[in-house]
Structures are given as structure tokens and as C-alpha cells.
Design a protein around this nucleic acid. Sequence first.
DNA 1: TATTGTTATACTCTATAACTATA
DNA 2: TATAGTTATAGAGTATAACAATA
Lengths: 151, 151
Amino acid sequence: MAKKDLARDAWQQVVMLFLGDEQQERFHEACARVGLPHPGSLKALVSLDDVEPKSMRTLAAEMRCDASYITALVDSLEKAGYVERRVSDTDRRVKLLHVTTAGRRAKQTARTVLTTPPVAIEKLTESELRQLNALLAKVRENTPEPTRFTL
Amino acid sequence: MAKKDLARDAWQQVVMLFLGDEQQERFHEACARVGLPHPGSLKALVSLDDVEPKSMRTLAAEMRCDASYITALVDSLEKAGYVERRVSDTDRRVKLLHVTTAGRRAKQTARTVLTTPPVAIEKLTESELRQLNALLAKVRENTPEPTRFTL
DNA sequence: TATTGTTATACTCTATAACTATA
DNA sequence: TATAGTTATAGAGTATAACAATA
């Protein structure tokens, strides 16, 4: 088989695995666990850095959604006590989003739910898992722009 | 590292790869290419079998959504000429969804878009790709219920 | 009476446009 | 004048409830 087809096959299997495991339902479960209303707000929380605050605008760009929606998302995050808006010292138009301690805890909980592997993966042997990890790590190293958010 | 953690790591990498590659945008692109209004209708089309017709109810159960929404999705698929509703011979309440020739072509187009691998995967060597494929195939063999839809 | 599919309707998620405050 | 964020509003996507036809 041509190399191109091998690559396509590999990705096809990833897609099917992912859709088959219903990661979408995982996302909803994670929302329920941390008490957030919808996946958007959770994605926003996960997109924020624990120590380096981002402006609303930056977050909107990263999430590729409208700024007005970010307002709504951050409202729910603030209501849950997971982030604080603080006016920037250098530009008073800008609001910086600080993740609170509770926010960090919530992220950790979400991370645990989202990265729970499907049973099929756990059935691999230890050495197979090591191989798989090594290959996936290599793929991620090759990724041009690193993932927008880190789990 | 414990085996459990290796499995979690592997899955975490899959999740990040998948989200990083913006498979969601892929889905929208595939919709545009085959002229369907939204991901829901494309997912419905891809969930249908080319030869074995399914009832609306069955499709609703598989897609885990309300029957009334299936009505809307199938409306758009029928408008695009990709499926036909045919009343069942054995139960006249039931409508069976037949994929048309144009529908099969559309599925093939969508498949091509959705399985296009991210560049990072294409950078692996041929032997690494073979290894990755073999491991992923093994994972999919272990999957308890086979994926709802096959790309 | 129970079930399949449809219609009418309402709710949730997300975007566009108009607005306020600051630069 | 241009930019950051908010508010008001509208649109898309999805569900719930009531309904018609068939079982």
C-alpha cells in the first residue's frame, strides 16, 4: 500500500475510534461533573492557562467564535467561581481572565473524565501501549501549531 | 508507568490530536462539498447503510436523538436526492430509508474529506505508519460494539 | 391501547448589529 | 477614529408535546 494510503487509513481509524467512543457524551458528562451548563463553557475553561491570564479577545480568537459569545461563556464560568475578570493594568478596555483555585480543580476533574480511555485501548498489552504512545507522541511533535488546549 | 496510565496517556493523545486537527471544521467542509445544510444531516447519511435500509426510528436510536429531528434531517437528505423514504411492506407505519446512487456518491466524497490525515501523520515513516495501523486495528477489534457508522 | 412518523412549538447555542467605555 | 467588551436581538439546531395513521 502507498504511504499516502497508510496515513489515510491510520487517520480513518482514529476518527472512527473517536466518534465510536462518543467523546461528545464525555464532554457532556464532564460538564455535569463540574457544574457547567454546556460544552462551550467547559472548552473555554480548558482553553485558559492556569497561570498566564488571557484577554477575552484572545480567547475568542483561539476558540474561533464571536466575542459576544465569549461574554456569555465567561459569565457562566464566573458564576461557577472558576474564573475572575480583572481589568488590565495597561489597557483599561481589556479584561484578563484569571483561573481560580476552584477553576483549577474543575479543570482537573474534566481532564480525568475526558481522558478516560475506551475499554478497547486498555485491552492492549503494556508493550503495545508503549509503542502506541511513542508513535502518537511523534505525531504530536510533528504538528505544526501545537494544540490550542492541553488536557 | 502503570498500564492504566499508559492507556490514559494514549487516549489523551488521541483526543488532543483529534481536537487539534479541528475535525469539526472538516465536518463542515464535507457538508459544503456534498451540499448538505449541517453536520447532523451528513452524520445521518453516513449512518445509513448503502444496501440495508433502516427505519426512521432505528436511525433515531442509533444517533441518540429525537424522532422528530430525524424527520427534519431526512427531509434535507431527501431534498438533496440522497435518500428515499419507502413505506415498509410489513408495517405501513414504518418508513424505510433507501440510499440512492447520488447518496452513495455523496458518502464517498464525505469519506474522502473526513479521512484526510493531518500533515503530522503523513510525516511518519512508512514502517511507523504500518505499526500505527496495526495497533489501531487491534484496538478497533477489541471494541465491544462496533462503531455506529463506518467511514 | 401502543407505536411510527409528522407538525407545531419552545428552548439552547451561537452569531450579527448596535452600544459604551477607553485608547 | 479604532478597539475591548457588553447588550439586544435574530438565527440555527435540537427537543418536547400533541396529533394522525396504523398496528
